[in-house]
């Protein structure tokens, strides 16, 4: 019982640093470009709409923010259907 508790507790604490890193990664990416996750969702929808007007989309489109050092970039990956 004691061992089990200890394991649970250490596992939990091992994740507090990891959780901090995950939360920071997300919040800093958004802070740097001044965009909320809500805005990112809207942006994603609009980008996909524009592409869909001209091409047929094949598969799952992805629009994500990525970090390269202190710079941020919009990573847009939209698979298109061939003719």
């Amino acid at each position: 019982m004691f061992d089990f508790l200890k394991r649970v507790l250490t596992n939990d604490s091992a994740s507090s640093r990891r959780r901090a890193n995950e939360r920071l990664r997300l919040v800093l990416t958004h802070d740097r470009i001044g965009a909320s996750s809500q805005l990112m969702e809207t942006l994603k929808e609009e980008i996909i709409q524009v592409i869909a007007r001209h091409f047929e989309i094949d598969g799952t489109p992805e629009v994500t923010l990525i970090r390269e050092g202190r710079r941020s970039a919009l990573d847009i990956n939209i698979p298109l259907k061939g003719r």
């Binding site: 250490t10 507090s16 640093r17 990891r18």
Partner: peptide
């Protein structure tokens, strides 16, 4: 940091 409860220098 060793216990996984604080951000490390590298983090």
């Amino acid at each position: 940091v060793k216990k996984g409860d604080m951000l490390s220098i590298d983090d």
